[in-house]
């Protein structure tokens, strides 16, 4: 089962290494990881998507809490979170295929950011599920390259983690 964990940490050198090292040595697999400064520049927010059963997730939360640099840990349940991931996709595209691809992008929320006689580069940001559907639609044209960020997530409604 996938778990999305939001961690607020001290924005200091070495903190990411500590967090990543903890995952490795406790045997947790990281699916994706995203780090960025928060509105308070002394605090960074790390969003981790990891795979494991509930006991593993619980252990993970406790071990993360134990790190001296950790300010707060929250495991977000799937129904309370808004998750986003950004992808840049370079696609094979002949001039004849362009309008088809453009239509897919328009419907699915993709944006064309670059174009050559033989390729199109699309930028798309959405939930991981939506991106999966988008990929299924464009796969047929031939994907040359995909670059993706880790998932970031925020809670729905007025609640915050701070």
């Amino acid at each position: 089962m996938k778990h999305t964990v939001s961690v607020l940490v001290e924005n200091r050198a070495g903190v990411l290494a500590r967090i990543a090292g903890l995952f490795a040595r406790r045997g947790f697999n990281i699916d994706s990881l995203a780090v960025g400064e928060t509105n308070d520049p002394t605090i960074s927010r790390i969003t981790i998507v990891a795979d494991g059963d509930d006991h593993t997730a619980q252990q993970l939360e406790k071990q993360l809490n134990k790190l001296v640099d950790t300010i707060k840990v929250r495991t977000l349940s799937p129904d309370e979170l808004l998750a986003r991931e950004l992808q840049l996709i370079k696609l094979n595209a002949t001039p004849a295929q362009r309008s088809e691809i453009l239509t897919i992008c328009e419907v699915m929320g993709g944006k064309i950011v670059d174009m050559t006689p033989t390729s199109i580069t699309i930028e798309i940001s959405d939930s991981p599920e939506h991106l999966q559907r988008f990929r299924a639609l464009i796969e047929g044209y031939g994907i040359k390259e995909i670059v993706r960020t880790g998932t970031i997530a925020i809670q729905k409604g007025v609640v915050t983690i701070r």
Partner: peptide, 8 residues
């Protein structure tokens, strides 16, 4: 004293 030990 270590919450991470409990239930580990």
């Amino acid at each position: 004293v270590d919450p991470a030990e409990i239930g580990k």
